[in-house]
Nucleic acid binder design. Sequence first.
DNA 1: CCAGACGTTGTT
DNA 2: GTCTGG
DNA 3: CCAGACGTTGTT
DNA 4: GTCTGG
Length: 248
Amino acid sequence: MCYHYSINKTATEIAERYNILPRLPQIDPFPVHYHTNGFDHEYLPIVLQNVKEGDLNIDFMQWGMVPAWVKGEEHASGIRSKTLNARYETIDVKPSFKHAFKYRPCLVPATGYFEWMHYNGKKYPFFIFVPDMEIFSFAGIWDEWISEQTGEILHSFAIITCEANRLTSKIHNARKRMPVILDPQNENEWLMADEIPKKKALLKPFDSSRMNAYTISRLITDRNRDSNIPGVVRPFKYPELNDLELSG
DNA sequence: CCAGACGTTGTT
DNA sequence: GTCTGG
DNA sequence: CCAGACGTTGTT
DNA sequence: GTCTGG
């Protein structure tokens, strides 16, 4: 699963990472997100294929995908907390996701994500990242929803999940899921492929040996403070976890 | 056929 | 313990 | 996912 | 819009 992640880079830096240079003036300034909570449905930078010109573009979409067929604002705000993630196993058959899976793939730029380990009855937050990629991509899907009431257009997205790999299943010691992270050489393929088996073949757990993680402070879920600050991704030690071995 | 849902996570 | 709201 | 509530009566 | 349960 993945309900909390980090993209603490400016839109300009993200554009450079994906070789999207020409449109820079339009997309900055944009706030960085040391921590975004899915249930806040923030606007976040998304990379997608520009249908007309064929090159990549950045758009800003709300996390929590509202499918195009949803009727009414109330229904839209009700469903988006349940569509933060989409299971890869059923993404091609679920009514909420199959259309977006077929026609609207996207990359979700990230610098890391957050997960809680359950240990002796307590929960410990971890920051999980890919040391060899400052910005990496979750595989995502998006959709366009138009409000009947206001005519307003909403672009929103979901992050695809798969079974956890070795590292992430140790942090998730109960149920084992993780967001799909794409190898950079597969990013374009994810945006371009049009055969369902080809697309599903890309949705695999990322190489555990290329990932790393450490504990962070409980500031991340402190409701009395803004968690979107650098301190939220800084290492924080819990003495009772000292014996824990993540790499083995 | 119609009505109603449409989703994920976690669980010693 | 379990549900709800964010 | 986590944090926080979890109930009723009567109401200027 | 499309699927599922009754």
